[in-house]
Amino acid sequence: MGSLNTVLCGIPIDNPIIPASGTFGYGYEFAELYDINCLGSFSFKGTTASPREGNPLPRIAESASGMLNSVGLQNPGVESVICDELPKLRRVFRKPVIANICGFSISEYVEVAEKLDQQDQVGWLEVNISCPNVHGGGMSFGTDPKLAAEVTKAVKSATRKPVIMKLSPNVSDISAVATACEQAGADGISLINTLMGMRIDPGIQRPILANITGGLSGPAVFPIALRMVWQVYQAVSIPVIGLGGISTPEQVIEMMLAGAVAVEIGTANLIDPYACPKILRALPAVMDRYGIRSLKNIVGGAHG
């Protein structure tokens, strides 16, 4: 059987399968269904300094091979995550977890990063500068290379843990944002967050989402995510996590061939809660079929 282990920003992980933030809560919904220790790690729900209720309903719309969400970073706030969620998580997950953080100002990112830096369970910080569903924060930091660099620098100074910047695909030059983050000290890049879109209900002749726009995810976005991972891999030398529409072991291999050291699985978890363990179980046979003996050896392999 081929080897699945890989290294994410200096920390070895058993396999590259990581549930993406916002599709896995704080882990325990899924721990009721299977032993989540089979995962490489997982990225928990985007966490802000104060509790956030998120956007009004409806927050979900459907599209061909995908869905739109406008949840808007509903989360209990960093204090509650540390006092309530992480202790519960410790009981079901033994490995280092990826703390996904978000803010509406650079000082908020720093505050959340400093607090989560103190938590032993947290292996990495994934900095969401790409949420399309909040106003005045989130994605506005990820669409301007200068602001992206400022957030990176500030968060880096607030933590000793590896800092992974999560990028938005809603930009014309993804490499420029990735390069700016790398130069500001980022330890890794994850991409892509959702693509901004909308749907209109012909029955009521109004947008379906109360927020009007939402983020598109699911199999529909996979080719775009793959292309952007390819571009970012060429632009930077820090590790890249690939995500966006992955739902099969073959797509995991594609993402790694494009340059990802690990992958995040997002929307697939919402359609089939067993998506990650199913992909994980199927990976060795798929690797055998393509003559792949070690996943970490194929990273960026398609670039020739």
């Binding site: 916002g22 309903l57 969400n69 919402l270």
Partner: peptide, 13 residues
Amino acid sequence: RMGCGFGACMGCS
């Protein structure tokens, strides 16, 4: 309107 239906996505909070 729901997303996942089992508590993961926060789409129906």
